[in-house]
Design a protein around this nucleic acid. Sequence first.
DNA 1: GCCAATATGACAGTATACTGTCAATAAGGG
DNA 2: CCCTTATTGACAGTATACTGTCATATTGGC
Lengths: 161, 161
Amino acid sequence: MHPLRYAGHSRAGSRLTDFILRTFRVNGALIAAGDRLARPIGLTAARWQVLGSVAGLPQPAPVAHVAREMGLTRQSVQRLVDHLAEEGLLAYQENPHHKRAPVVVMTTRGRKAFGGLTARQVPWVNDLARGLSTREIETAVRVLRQIEERLAPATATPVQR
Amino acid sequence: MHPLRYAGHSRAGSRLTDFILRTFRVNGALIAAGDRLARPIGLTAARWQVLGSVAGLPQPAPVAHVAREMGLTRQSVQRLVDHLAEEGLLAYQENPHHKRAPVVVMTTRGRKAFGGLTARQVPWVNDLARGLSTREIETAVRVLRQIEERLAPATATPVQR
DNA sequence: GCCAATATGACAGTATACTGTCAATAAGGG
DNA sequence: CCCTTATTGACAGTATACTGTCATATTGGC
């Protein structure tokens, strides 16, 4: 690995640089794992995530809202939702509050697919977690959240155009 | 956020699911930050990373080797290296050990660009790290490494075709 | 030395996510 | 009520990373 550890890095800065490079690799590995899990259901990791976001909405919401929730741009999520709608897993429903911005809702097929994905994800993640320290995972989540928050003002929330 | 926390998740599995979803968001935010840092130098986060990988090679190596090192596919890295070679930041050099697989080397311009990137990254990451616990960052890195290792057999090292 | 297995680059195609831009709608201040 | 601002979707283009496939070069077993 190339730790990018140069003269000038503080101790914490050096570790954080390790963290960043490692995050890139793990992200790739996790997407690959998600794609493998979702494949038998005919989905991808990205579409699964959208499905999950819509499933978790307290109320139906427009695409832009889902995107904000996921930390992605409207445009990216729009394509995914459009595809899932074509497949019949999501549907657009007229929005009484906004003529041009229909809300996204789950269909029965979507709920069924998401249930199947969950059924596969649960044992997979439980097994992946086995042997790892829950306390350490929680610490890692806290670090991730802190970094996300610090990055957020400039980047984590992509500028909505 | 949508914690994907369902009946069936072990405690650790539930936390790990949080970790995974959080990783996706942080990955995006970090790439955005890297793009902003690299932009004044005329580069992107991905090209910067390739430059760094090549800079860190103990000896010049072919593209496939750099890709393995980065946890990406040959094909992805090939495009990035080709582009950087066109820009004159990297160069292909004949490989005495393999007629068809030239090794990648830094050019003077490449070293200069990478130096400029480092000069920008160091204060940026030091500042980002300020106030974070070094111990917690180290724990997070350990968790990332463990997960990468567990995922590796199937996915982290993409199948090279 | 030969032949199968492996490594590498090349080429083609797809998925994901970005930026930039525009028009339409909604919301809010005066 | 009007007008500026913000939100949303639509459309176009780019960057990154993937899979699949092929030809060529190298390596290692026999």
